[in-house]
Amino acid sequence: MSTEVTTAMKINTLKRHFRESIKSLGRNSWMTIASVSAVTVTLILVGVFALIMMNLNKVASDLENDVEIKVLIDETAGKADEKALMEKIEKLPDVAESTYSTRENELTKLVKDFGDDFKLFEQSNPLRNVIYVKASDPQQTAKVAKTIEKFNYTYDVMYGEGKVEKLFNFLNISRNVGIVLILGLLFTAIFLISNTIRITIIARRDEIEIMKLVGATNSFVRIPFLLEGMWLGILGSIIPIAVIATLYHNVYKIIAPRLKGELVQVLDFSPLVYQVSALLLLIGVLIGIWGSFMSVRKFLKI
């Protein structure tokens, strides 16, 4: 019985907090609009940036996975030597797989890629037998290549030296620049939200004073403001979610067909856009609550 009463009371209280927080948004409509706009601008940029970064990551990992080591086998190696070499390579801890390809096979590929002119070489094939090696972690490619180089009967070891590293460097730099930019924007949004809440608090100073005089607990006084901050964040994330969904839908329509059959692909609309939308909503709610928390702490002194 008594727990029932307590629960009913809690629900009433919660309803009251929600009602108060929503009413308050309307009462300070100009500040509400200002903070919601700030959150909106911030989240649009966060969203676009997230879409770009996630696609660049995809491109990078596509390229990365394509990186393989080409081990040219010395012509003096016999069948048994080749087999021994391959076994030795496969025993290396960082090697995921290796494939053997004969010189004839290599020439066929060359002709296929670059045209019939290369058919001339069918008379005297200048190519060598090859072992293709993939590292289990693409980042370890260089290390694996250097180890294989020292083995007997290797004529040459080749991999896309430098290119992958450059791409990763570029990704890291743009990610850092983006993060700094977004942090700046987030702080601006938090600042504006805490200002809005501050004005709400000032507008309701008398009410808060009376609440405290008649014995309202601190959390009772605080919760409506935190809820109000949360609403600001949620309202601010609606437009950004619509923008990134529309934007990505259209960009995908243009880019995806052109990349058909290519090594590099962009991410599909689903689940990417849903994930980014959820992220934006979460960020909106968090900065809303955080912004109002700062104000409440400072101006209520409770």
Binding site: V5, M9, K10, N12, T13, R16, I210, M211, A216, F220
Partner: peptide, 11 residues
Amino acid sequence: AFALEVIEEEP
């Protein structure tokens, strides 16, 4: 009523 609402009294 405000004085009772804020101390979460039953309606």
